[in-house]
């Protein structure tokens, strides 16, 4: 693996898609918009609800689950408890970012190369199949991770600003948002790009790749959801197990993508 070549390919892709207004706006504004929207539309309306209108029985079923991860849970008022539960609930929507961004970028950089008839220049170059696959992963990985970090920070800060006067301390950063941002999201980004590479071999237009890709990566989102839910059960084993499964899936899909992105196969599909 020649990393200078991999980086050259990734750098070219980044330069290229940042010049596409649609992709650029998706990368920059979608994380900001989604995180702010979730905080403002999901949590802010509840902040102004009078304390006596909150009935603790409404969320009694998950009360014990959240109590596992939030210290001093039993000392919070019913309203504070409701706000904390909602803040965690809305965080799941922010978890869509490491699925959406890589899917859009991978469609643009892989199927887009086919659509714009530039793929043959790549295939004719000395880049190996592995270098092409890794180059495409890197070009989608960086904005996805940056987007996820930005979204997590914006969401965490917004929630803390809204909840601090009520709960008297900062809810975020907590282990869940750190686990999501720095462990789950990087691995799922890689898996999404690998899936998109496989899809791209069958697709000839970026629009088709978006549509099919959005369906195929949904199970990945489900896995992120399950992984985050397992956090509430304080099952360290489940978290480690889930992370290992994600890593193994990323390795498995890499091998699959590398094989599917066979030079001859890719070339014949271009003809």
């Amino acid at each position: 693996m020649r990393w200078d070549r991999v980086w050259a390919l990734a750098k070219k892709d980044i330069k290229e898609y940042t010049k596409s207004k649609y992709v650029f706006f998706t990368i920059i504004f979608m994380p900001l918009f989604l995180s702010l929207l979730m905080a403002i539309s999901g949590v802010l309306p509840l902040v102004s609800i009078p304390e006596d209108e909150v009935n603790e029985n409404d969320f009694a079923s998950i009360d014990n689950i959240v109590a596992n991860v939030v210290t001093g849970w039993e000392n919070f008022s019913p309203k504070a408890k409701m706000l904390i539960i909602t803040a965690y609930g809305m965080l799941f929507f922010v978890a869509l970012i490491p699925v959406i961004i890589p899917s859009i970028i991978a469609s643009e950089t892989i199927v887009g190369e086919k659509e714009r008839k530039t793929m043959e220049g790549i295939i004719a170059s000395p880049l190996s199949e592995g270098e092409i696959v890794v180059g495409k992963i890197v070009s989608a990985f960086l904005p996805s991770i940056i987007g996820t970090i930005v979204a997590s920070i914006v969401y965490a800060v917004s929630i803390d600003i809204m909840l601090y006067p009520i709960i008297g301390r900062l809810l975020f950063p907590d282990p869940l948002i750190i686990l999501f941002t720095f462990v789950i999201s990087p691995i799922t980004t890689i898996i999404c790009v690998e899936l998109m590479i496989m899809i791209s071999t069958k697709m000839s237009s970026v629009r088709d790749a978006y549509q099919v890709g959005s369906l195929v990566v949904m199970p990945v989102f489900l896995f992120i959801f399950l992984q985050m839910v397992s956090f509430f059960f304080s099952s360290l084993l489940a978290i480690i197990g889930g992370t290992l499964i994600l890593i193994l899936a990323a390795i498995f899909f890499y091998k699959l993508a590398e094989n599917i992105f066979d030079r001859e196969n890719a070339l014949v599909k271009l003809m």
Binding site: K12, K15, E16, K19, K117, T118, G121, A124
Partner: peptide, 14 residues
Amino acid sequence: TETPSIYDRLSVRE
């Protein structure tokens, strides 16, 4: 190649 295989959004230098 039969098609130029150059990137329209990038400059000649890039």
